[in-house]
Amino acid sequence: MITFDDVVKVYPGGGTAVDHVSLEVPTGKTTVFVGPSGCGKTTSLRMINRMISPTSGRVLIDGEDVAGQDEALLRRGIGYVIQHAGLFPHRTVLDNVATVPVLLGKTRREARAAALGLLERVGLAPEFAQRYPAQLSGGQQQRVGVARALAADPPIMLMDEPFSAVDPVVREGLHREFLRLQKDLGKTIAMVTHDIDEAIKLGDLVVIFRQGGIVAQIGTPQELLSDPADEFVAEFVGRDRGLRSLSFDTAAELPVKPVPAELVVDEAGRPLGWRTGADDVRPTGGTFTSADTLRLVADLAILSPVGIAVRVDADGKADGITPHHDLADYLAARRG
């Protein structure tokens, strides 16, 4: 666990970057620091590995003040991923990944062998190993950056806007892989982003900073969306937060009605479409299972030609329907 204990950072010349911040980054979870530029989120992140020293207050890792620890040794035990990856241009991909193990005293050979495995882990084919960073795309460089941070298997990872330098499609892919990796690895991650959607998607816990280095709210993504602490947070998490908060609940308890005759199914019971006229069958626009989110159900009901979302079982057989007014009633009842 990383603990910020009443941390203040004032720069000479007057600016307060971080203003009496106290918070906890729980072990094995992803905590995202988010806020507008100049809100102190990056400064806070960098105080964890002593890239920046607090003016007052303490930063502790598992109860131990980082200020008392050797800077270089501390940093070798903390993975660091930076925007644009910050790879070493003069080293191959493999040697970039092997950097920290070599610093820790492993032979280059051992470190390279381990690095090869890590490349696979982050979804890079082995033929990238001998290339130089300049030969990679932005998304590939970012993967190498993540592999490099993971190389010494540090319990803690710091990620400073790790996905902001790539285009939205690539970012989407990196997000998926990040979540998959983190599910396997369970690192203690502190991440900085200015993108609230990224924070909500990736964070177990989200810390919203406001101008002047003040923490506006700390909570799970769901808490922030459903119960913003003030106007600033409500504004920051966005206007469609009601709809987005549906992403956190599954359709497991959503009541369904029996499949009506208007739903055309094949011989295995899989839905083909809605009969809207004598020879007019229109596609359902998709189906949901009880494991899908309520947001998907709402989306399907809106897109459906008849305003009805279709549920299927594990085999793809239609086993119930939810008209959009049933979904509305369910949400209203749940709130009450």
Binding site: L74, R76, Y80, F88, H90, T99, V100, L103
Partner: peptide, 24 residues
């Protein structure tokens, strides 16, 4: 960005100079 990421990975100043800054 390169020197900073080297520092963040745990390079001390002298080795960072020899291993990273001079080669680059």
């Amino acid at each position: 960005l390169i020197t900073e990421s080297a520092t963040a990975m745990g390079y001390r100043r002298f080795r960072r100079l020899i291993d990273v800054e001079l080669p680059v």
